[in-house]
C-alpha cells in the first residue's frame, strides 16, 4: 500500500493499529488519513474505547458465586479440599 490510504484499507489494519502491532510506515499512513477523514478518526477512537470498556470488565476478579463453587466441588467429590 502506498500513497493514500482509503477508508476500506484502514479498516483492515485497524485491529493491529489499536493493538500497537502495526508497522510504523502503515501507522503513519493511517494517521495521515485520519487527519483528513473525521469519520475514520471517530471509528478509531470509538473502537479503542470499545475495547477498553471490555478490558475493564475483565479486570474484575473472576470469582464464582459461592453456591456455584459449592455445587462444583460436590460434583467433583472435592468437598474435603475446599478452601474456606
Amino acid at each position: 500500500m502506498s500513497g493514500q490510504v482509503r477508508c476500506q484499507d484502514l479498516l483492515a489494519s485497524l485491529s493491529d493499529y489499536v493493538d500497537g502491532v502495526l508497522d510504523e510506515a502503515l501507522c503513519r499512513e493511517i494517521e495521515a488519513h485520519m487527519a483528513a477523514c473525521p469519520n475514520c478518526r471517530v471509528v478509531v477512537d470509538t473502537l479503542r474505547k470499545t475495547i477498553y470498556l471490555y478490558h475493564q470488565m475483565s479486570k474484575e476478579p473472576a470469582t464464582l458465586p459461592s453456591v456455584v463453587q459449592e455445587r462444583l466441588y460436590r460434583m467433583l467429590h472435592l468437598d474435603d479440599y475446599r478452601k474456606l
Binding site: P61, L64, Q69, L72, L76, L78, Y81, K83
Partner: peptide
C-alpha cells in the same frame, strides 16, 4: 492427586465460569 486437582479447580474455575 485430589489435592492437586482441587488446586487446579481453584485456580481456573472463575475464568472458566466467566
Amino acid at each position: 492427586d485430589r489435592q492437586e486437582f482441587a488446586r487446579l479447580v481453584d485456580l481456573y474455575a472463575g475464568q472458566v465460569y466467566r
